[in-house]
Every structure is written in C-alpha cells, then in structure tokens.
Amino acid sequence: MWKKSENSTEVPTQNISPAQSHPQPVREQAIIGSSLLVKGDVTGEEDLTIQGQVEGKVILKKNGVTIGKNGRVKADVYGKTISVEGSVQGNLHAEERIIVRQTGNVRGNLHAPRVTLEDGAQFKGSIDMEGKEREKPETVQPTITTPKSDSGGTGAKPQDSGQGRLGINVKPPSKT
C-alpha cells in the first residue's frame, strides 16, 4: 500500500528554495470550548475560536477571532479579522474585516474596513463606512420637477426649493 501507484500523477518539478523546503509553521489556533466561561480579558498572539462564553474584552489585534455558533461574548472584540457565528454584545474592531455569518447575532458597533453581513444575520448597531470609489453622479438639476409615480398617479408636488438640505440639488428620478 505504500508503494507509489504507477498511475499516480507526477508532481511537477519546482525550484524550491531551501527556505521554502522547510515545513511551514502551523498557525497557532486556540479554542475556548463550549463548556468554558471566561470572566476577564483575553489577550495573546494566536488565532482564537470561542465556542464558550467570554465576559471580558478579547484583544487579538494581529489575529483572527471566530465566535463560533455556540460562542457568546459580552464585551468588545479586537482582531485582525472577526467572524461571528454566535452572539456578541459589544463593539467589534477589526483591522481587516468583520463577517457576521447567517447564524450570527451582534448588538454593538462595527469598525472595520470591510464588513459583511450574511443573509439571516441579526445585527443592531452602527457601521462606520468610509465610502468606496463611486461613479461620478449624474449632473444634477437646479430645480425640482414633479416626478410621476409609477402608478402614473398622485405624486405630490414637491415643496422644496431645489437645493437639498444634504447639500445637493434635488433631482427627480429618471422615468423608465
């Protein structure tokens, strides 16, 4: 059984530098098991999966933090990436990305360059967004005209004076 099969595909020869030939170090991964309750802050330098309960800050700014399906965290979480499948009551701060999975439930504020909420995820709180590169907006009209509703019906006559309060001219939607 240890004999290499004659049919096995040959691995293409690659130039592997001595440094690459060494086995890659296994990334440290810690788990707080489902029966564990941690009261106090958690810090360190390895990835962490929380399946139990944590009542204290989780500070792993250079590492990934996963709150598993059974995981519950009541405090702020700091990580490089944060993935929530369980529940969190606290603010999430990620250097790179926050993902609230379908089963995730977050009550708190999210701070990260990228935030993903999967369908079904429950979230209440705020998300700070810097704004992506946006297409140049269409030329705005100096005045409001009365747009027709898609019923062709009773669009009330706008009463504003063209200059929107948000600092831009109000423009009616284009008609389909």
């Binding site: 935030v115 993903t116 995820a121 998300i127 967004m129 946006r134």
Partner: peptide
C-alpha cells in the same frame, strides 16, 4: 439589517 443594504451604503461615506 441586510448585507445587501449595507453593501449599498458602503459606496457612501457614512455611519449607518
């Protein structure tokens, strides 16, 4: 909360 709505607003600079 819907990811689709968050994605939409992410094109603007805002706090949602």
């Amino acid at each position: 909360a819907f990811g689709q709505n968050v994605d939409f607003f992410s094109q603007f600079s805002c706090k949602l």
